[in-house]
Design a protein around this nucleic acid. Structure first.
Length: 487
RNA sequence: CGGGGCGUGGCGCAGCUCGGUAGCGCACCUGCUUUGGGAGCAGGGGGUCGCCGGUUCGAAUCCGGCCGCCCCGACCA
């Protein structure tokens, strides 16, 4: 990095920039255990705000929270064939406890389908017991070979929803309903508008019939799988004997769904909005939306300034704004400005002796239009009254900027693998092409471009004119698919 | 798991080639002066130089082994 105070510019080395932002904005820090990290209060506060918003959306759609245990019998994981194949390489296993070797090893959950459907089987007898709509907030562990702060850590926090339904249609509707919730959340809270769609066979969840995903585009034009929703069919219910008696008296297996988003979303937020000065947190997620920096002098105005600061903070809090007063006396105002900008606080308010005289405050926004002044002096009353709306406007602007960037970096109408490679060499983000549905083509594309299929896009994201030929040149296109280099 | 880099006060680094008093910047503590974009001065505290072994009168430095971390690739929320 340039020096101790500034960050490596994104244009120079995006990966270094990302790490520095996460560490210097105090979102997280490396822990003594390889691949795992400590989420610090600023990062955890953002996660809490994400949790709160999502939790409300889940509950509004009839879901309830529960908690299932961390340890899962090894035999459970092994029941579903694809599931074990997918997760075996990254399992952490407890083989010894209380000084004794366990009779059956216990897996630290990489995901909880198996233990949850085992329990559902116990609770469900009749179609009247369905649907079950549960969610849990939990940690999971996947022993990844290569880890990155927030994006891929050995242990991470997430929510996992698990539902059981009497019919496939109902389960499918649940899967898609959740996908929409994720999408809305990513747009309205994280200001990270994703594209949505169906995963191809080679990219779907281990054990799913169909996987849907939200894919977001980062500033380096790499895609981030930000949330997934799976239709599991009867794959797990058959292995875990999750049966019910139907209205007609027949014994039937239930249909399941599972869906999750994780602390990876914080990484997505960083890479969607951050700039060379540091993090930018969308107002709705910011633990502190407005930081007030008192400008004091060592004279008799000092106590008057501090009094005014408290008064303004109180009034803003009453208006529902999350405010922090930075009263630290050993730092100069400038040092505080840089620190809060690095942490991405949306607005800063300065109150000093000059403001007392004029009844004004200085207002500074974390990002501002090209050429705008660094701070705006506005009457105190006006600042207090307009800040809630200013925060919302900032939120909207971040979202629309991200959406515009996604569109600008999306390429359609590519007709061959050669052109696809050229597009990525030229820095494309999402590239749409026709596809004949053959996994061999995905292999060819990966070989030639390092890109993978992200989704078969949902209707609204499809090109106005759907491609007629497969990008491989081998036959007509059965569908359109979106390619990207991915995290 | 392959390739690259790095391990020296809390952080960032120099010192290692050519063995001999552990050093710099930031941070930290005390005091005074300061405070509208990273404050100044004065004083002060803190490191068995990643670990183990070897060579040597003497090792941060040379030799051997091990461990850890980060970055880049194959796999993944």
């Amino acid at each position: 990095m340039a020096d101790d105070k500034s960050l490596t510019p994104r244009s120079e080395d995006f990966a270094s920039w990302y790490n520095e932002v996460v560490l210097k904005a105090e979102l997280a820090d490396y822990s003594p255990v390889r691949g795992s990290m400590v989420i610090r209060p600023w990062g955890y506060g953002i996660w809490e705000n994400m949790q709160q918003a999502l939790d409300r959306m889940f509950k509004e759609t009839g879901h309830e929270n529960a908690y299932f245990p961390l340890l899962i019998p090894m035999s459970f994981i092994q029941k579903e064939k694809d599931h074990i194949e997918g997760f075996a390489p990254e399992l952490a296993v407890v083989t010894e406890a209380g000084g004794k070797v366990l009779e059956e090893p216990l897996v630290i959950r990489p995901t909880s389908e198996t233990i949850i459907y085992h329990m559902y089987a116990k609770w469900v007898q009749s179609y009247r017991d369905l649907p079950i709509l549960m969610n849990q907030w939990a940690n999971v562990m996947r022993w990844e070979l290569r880890t990155r702060l927030f994006l891929r850590t050995a242990e991470f926090l997430w929510q996992e929803g698990h539902t059981a339904h009497a019919t496939a249609d109902e389960a499918e509707a649940e899967t898609l309903g959740i996908l929409q919730i994720y999408r809305t959340f990513m747009e309205d809270w994280i200001c990270m508008p994703p594209i949505t769609g169906l995963k191809t066979e080679s990219e779907k969840f281990a054990g799913a019939v169909r996987s849907y995903a939200c894919e977001a585009l980062m500033q380096d034009n790499k895609a981030l799988q930000a949330g997934t929703s799976h239709f599991l069919g009867q794959n797990f219910s058959k292995q875990f004997d999750l049966k019910f008696q139907s209205e007609e008296g027949r014994e039937e297996y239930a249909y399941n769904t599972s869906w999750g988003v994780s602390t990876r979303l914080i990484g997505g937020m960083v890479m969607t909005h951050g700039d060379d000065d540091g993090l930018i947190v969308p107002p709705r997620l910011a633990p502190t939306q407005v930081v007030i920096v008192p400008i004091t002098r060592g004279d008799d105005t000092r106590s008057a300034v501090l009094e005014k600061v408290d008064e303004v903070a109180g009034r803003l809090r009453a208006a529902g704004v999350r405010v922090k007063v930075d009263g630290r006396d050993h730092l100069s105002p400038g040092a505080k400005f840089y620190e809060w900008e690095r942490k991405g606080v949306p607005y800063r308010l300065e109150i000093g002796p000059k403001d007392l005289e004029k009844g004004s405050v200085a207002l500074a926004r974390r990002v501002r239009p090209e050429g705008a002044k660094r701070k705006e002096f506005v009457p105190e009353e006006e600042a207090i009254e307009t800040l809630p709306a200013r925060l919302e406007a900032f939120q909207d602007e971040l979202r629309e900027t991200a959406r515009a960037r996604r569109e600008e970096n999306t390429v359609r109408g590519v007709g061959s693998i050669g052109e696809l490679a050229e597009a990525f060499e030229a820095g494309a983000g999402f590239v749409y092409t026709g596809w004949n549905g053959d996994p061999a083509v995905e292999e060819q594309v990966k070989e030639a471009t390092k890109a993978t299929s992200r989704v078969i896009p949902s209707e609204e994201f499809r090109s106005p004119r759907v491609p007629e030929r497969c990008v491989s040149g081998d036959g007509p296109a059965a569908m359109e698919v979106v390619w990207a280099r991915a995290y």
